[in-house]
């Protein structure tokens, strides 16, 4: 990948952040009280979702299911480890940007050990050494810096569910991935896409079982999952109750006077 491409990604990232700060991405109606998620772009998001879903049902899911059938579990775990490790520079940088200094040191050590002793990341030797995997990204960093989630976005083909706050992470993830700069980027990406889709088979099954409106289901699940990750899996307990207490959290569109 050329320097020029990398540069254009940086420019796009800066533009997105600027756009966010100018157009009120820091305001959000998503809160623990269960008020309805801010989705003003639904007229565009929904067709994009349908497009992705159609492509998924026709191509991606059957390919991922075949992949699961023909590869033994240890191989898939190795492939998953490999890609998790490639993405780890993004985790390290974002741990640091969120002020988690101790964690960013442990994350750096994790990346070094898994890349060397773990044969390029195929084996996760670091977890057993007391260096657990963390889940950080630029969207979470922006949240820690005080940005609200902004509007929900569905970005077809490359990303899926996202938001104004989370979209810039697409750029940081690419820029901080060593493979972005190698000629093998595309074939490796194809394997990554198939493997990631395979790892999501359970989640999409849950969606298909329970969702009455898969688009809204995905949106709500995504936005809540992001809050959970921002809080590193330790959401304040009180938030769960708000929905039972707050009469005013009723969706105004549904109130029949």
């Amino acid at each position: 990948m050329s320097q020029k491409y990398a540069l254009s990604l940086i420019v796009k990232l800066v533009l997105l952040v600027t756009f966010c700060s100018l157009y009120g991405c820091a305001t959000t109606r998503t809160d623990d009280a269960g008020a309805v998620t801010f989705d003003p772009f639904e007229p565009a998001n929904r067709p994009f979702y349908t497009l992705d879903d159609t492509l998924d049902k026709t191509f991606m899911r059957p390919i991922a299911e075949t992949y699961v059938k023909i590869t033994p579990t240890p191989v898939r775990i190795g492939v998953t480890n490999f890609f998790d490790n490639l993405l780890y520079p993004n985790v390290i940088v974002n741990s640091f940007l969120q002020g988690k200094l101790k964690q960013s040191v442990s994350d750096t050590a994790r990346f070094v050990f898994n890349s060397t002793l773990g044969i390029g990341g195929l084996l996760d030797v670091a977890t057993d050494m007391g260096l657990p995997m963390h889940d950080e990204d630029f969207g979470q960093t922006l949240a820690v810096w005080g940005f609200g989630s902004g509007a929900y976005l569905y970005i077809p083909l490359i990303e899926g569910p996202s938001s104004f706050r989370d979209a810039p992470d697409i750029a940081t993830r690419l820029l901080l991935n060593p493979f972005t700069y190698l000629p093998a980027f595309w074939p490796v990406s194809a394997l990554k896409i198939i493997n990631s889709r395979a790892n999501l088979l359970d989640d999409t099954t849950i969606r298909d079982e329970a969702a009455v409106d898969p688009y809204s289901f995905t949106r709500e699940a995504y936005m809540q999952q992001r809050e959970y990750l921002i809080h590193d899996g330790e959401l304040p307990n009180e938030g769960y109750e708000d929905i039972f207490e707050d009469e005013d959290s009723d969706d105004p569109a549904l109130i029949i006077e």
């Binding site: 269960g34 409106d213 709500e220 929905i243």
Partner: peptide
Amino acid sequence: IITVIANGVNDLSLKRGEYSDVIK
């Protein structure tokens, strides 16, 4: 039991968002 939260996703809040979309 009044709600279950799986990996941070509150089933009740999720259904609330989803069902209000369908009703609209």
